[in-house]
Design a protein around this nucleic acid. Structure first.
Lengths: 241, 241
DNA sequence: AATCCCAAACCTATAATACAGGTTGACACA
DNA sequence: TGTGTCAACCTGTATTATAGGTTTGGGATT
């Protein structure tokens, strides 16, 4: 375990050329009002315009790719990328691993988000969404003794609700916030040994799905609230803080 | 305006060595349970262990730095970095610029988040926080005819509430979600030409601060809800969709 | 024994050159 | 008009070099 905590005040760091180029590329994208899928000038072109080496350009492009600003493929010019949940999910997973936050804290944020998404889903859901949510609860019921499979349906359930909000930001956030279930559910499931307990989890989800089908925001919020109360109880009993 | 939309199906992309190394470094951090501030092996060491060139290591380290996983400084080994709001704020700003989402959508997410943070702030606030919030509303009042300065106090107000939740994730999210105000407020403020209108904005914030001071979640939620209703109206009147 | 200083070793930042393989667009041919 | 070929362009990886910042260990001094 490394313990290299610095005992000296940190000197202000000069802006590196890579950092400067990252900002230049972002400015280029925004000034020209580029959209998702539009090409960005190549490493070579940018390098010439900005008067920097290929090394600096490559490093800046890799950083921009890591930030999901551009996507880069061999032989093709980089293009503006659509944002997705991967980056934030990784940040949250890293935050949990490095003990910057706890599962309960993550769940509290999830809860406040999903109390809103479930209301919006009641208002905006299509018939297909209503059917899909009920189908997902049936799949959860059918797989309740295979925690990995059930977790995937559970995650899909919450993502489907977020998509039904018709606000593109909610699916990204909810998806990011739910990935941790892949790590927590197997452990929580060990404390739910009896079939009735496992099936109760499914019931909470079915109640939510029915409220959304019936377009009843009050019932949906109640059902989601109960679901989160019980999920939090499960986490606590399993030793998650 | 570039219009390079690909007309061919995209072939599956092989994993590059840089991507592979990014995953290796993340695994290293998590397997050794490194914490914020702990050093990571140098580019040279990792390059030797993984059998890759310095170029690949540098590019991977830059990507990890861009993701706020590590911080990198000349002459020192990289270290595990604390997460902060900068990355997500940049993603959201980029999303707005590239028309992947709208200001109203961003505000809706903000609203659901802040309806929760204000309740938690009532429960967890210290005397210092209560005083700071009231002070910030006074500063907003004193600067109501300088929109840039007032915006900074406004942002600080919301960030202070998020910090009072004692959940480290809320300040990150709220801070990320509020940075856009630097762009929207100057435009919205043009539609609030009369002093009384401007001061009403300050009143909403003061009402929130007073409810938090009085530890009254119901009043706090009402005041926050009114604030967001009115802020949304201002956005709509200013042409933001 | 504790502290300070300095040089060597180590560290990242940038540049240049080379080779490799993938993609695109223009041109020729059927 | 559709297909194949090839040159130009594109990113991926490696190596070597120079520059400046940081850390560490050994020796000198108090």
């Amino acid at each position: 375990m490394n313990k290299a905590v610095s005992r000296r005040p940190e000197s202000p760091q000069p802006q590196t050329m890579v950092q400067s180029v990252i900002a230049d590329v972002l400015r280029h994208i925004h000034e020209r009002q580029l959209k998702v899928g539009d090409t960005v000038p190549s490493e070579g072109e940018f390098g010439q315009q900005l008067g920097v080496s290929r090394t600096v350009m490559r490093e800046a492009f890799k950083a921009l790719a890591a930030m999901n600003i551009i996507e880069v493929h061999a032989g093709r010019k980089a293009r503006v990328k659509a944002f997705d949940s991967t980056l934030m999910a990784l940040t949250l997973s890293h935050g949990l691993h490095t003990e910057q936050l706890t599962v309960q804290q993550l769940w509290d944020v999830r809860r406040s988000m999903e109390m809103r998404t479930v209301v919006l889903a009641c208002m905006h859901r299509s018939e297909a969404v209503a059917a899909a949510l009920l189908e997902l609860t049936e799949r959860m019921r059918a797989t309740h003794n295979d925690v990995a499979a059930m977790t995937e349906h559970d995650i899909a359930f919450h993502e489907e609700i977020a998509k039904a909000t018709r606000n593109p930001l909610f699916p990204v956030l909810v998806s990011s916030l739910t990935q941790a279930m892949r790590e927590t559910n197997p452990i929580v499931w060990r404390s739910r040994t009896r079939s009735e307990e496992q099936l109760k989890v499914v019931d909470w989800h079915r109640d939510i799905a029915e409220a959304i089908r019936d377009q009843d925001p009050g019932r949906a919020m109640e059902a989601m609230s109960l679901h989160f109360d019980e999920a939090l109880r499960g986490l606590v009993l399993s030793g998650f803080n």
